[in-house]
């Protein structure tokens, strides 16, 4: 179900409209920044770009500040406006989603740090193709989640929730192939472990993108779809129509 963009406007209180609009747009700004962080971290790693890795590491502070500012604004709205219904769901969803964004930021920073380690090695580590691939995959999921948020697009959010298991499968396959490298040549273990951590970080980004999508479903429909199997989720949403 798609709704028009102004569902959070039209309050009698103009300043309440503005506060909610500001909260939403600040959240989307943070989302955009975090998405860039993921892409840049993967790029820094696969292109062995130390400068870019350092930049990602530093930018994480900006992500953290966004989190605090958004939480602060949300708490103010709760205290002063006592929002209800869709307004309440928006504010609560943002409070939850913002911590997922912040965690994605942390995972990006983790990847950037590992990139700095891997840059020091003299040969190209194994698994870069997989990193590029999974990185692209989870960044697309994140982008889709943010788009679903902006458009209140539940169908899109559900697609992203479903997509998570594909990322999990890619993560498993990639880890397994890395394991064979380690068995073939134990000298690569240390380096392979670093790459393994990157896989893990990216897989976590996918999980957080999936959480974001779940918050969006709650925000729009008021249905809690966390900890729900995919077929149950379909049932749950079908009942709404």
């Amino acid at each position: 179900m798609k709704k028009d963009g102004n569902v959070y406007g039209n309050h009698i209180s103009q300043s309440f409209n503005e506060e909610l609009a500001a909260l939403k747009s600040r959240f989307l700004e943070m989302g955009g920044l975090v998405e860039t962080q993921v892409l840049q971290a993967v790029k820094a790693l696969t292109e062995r770009d130390a400068e870019l890795a350092n930049l990602v590491r530093d930018e994480d502070k900006v992500v953290d500040r966004y989190e605090m500012k958004i939480d602060d604004a949300a708490i103010h709205i709760l205290a002063r406006r006592q929002p209800t219904a869709r307004d309440l769901r928006l504010v609560v969803s943002i409070i939850k989603a913002v911590s997922d964004l912040e965690r994605i930021g942390d995972e990006s920073k983790k990847i950037a740090k590992l990139a700095l380690q891997l840059v020091e090695g003299d040969k190209t580590p194994n698994g870069l193709t997989e990193i590029r691939h999974i990185g692209q995959h989870v960044a697309t999921m994140l982008n889709g989640a943010l788009e679903a948020f902006a458009r209140l697009d539940v169908e899109k959010a559900v697609e992203i929730i479903k997509e998570d298991k594909n990322v999990d499968a890619e993560y498993k396959t990639a880890s397994r192939s890395l394991m064979t490298y380690m068995m073939e040549d134990p000298r690569t273990i240390s380096e392979c472990m670093s790459v393994m951590w990157v896989f893990r970080a990216l897989e976590r980004v996918g999980d957080h993108a999936c959480n974001l999508a779940e918050h969006i479903v709650y925000m729009v429909e008021g249905e809690d779809v966390r900890h729900t199997k995919i077929d149950q989720l379909n049932e749950q949403l079908k009942r709404l129509d």
Binding site: N10, H11, I12, S13, F16, P83, T84, A85, R86, D87
Partner: peptide, 9 residues
Amino acid sequence: TEAYITGRF
């Protein structure tokens, strides 16, 4: 109901 409880027109 939603309009009333959320303070909308």
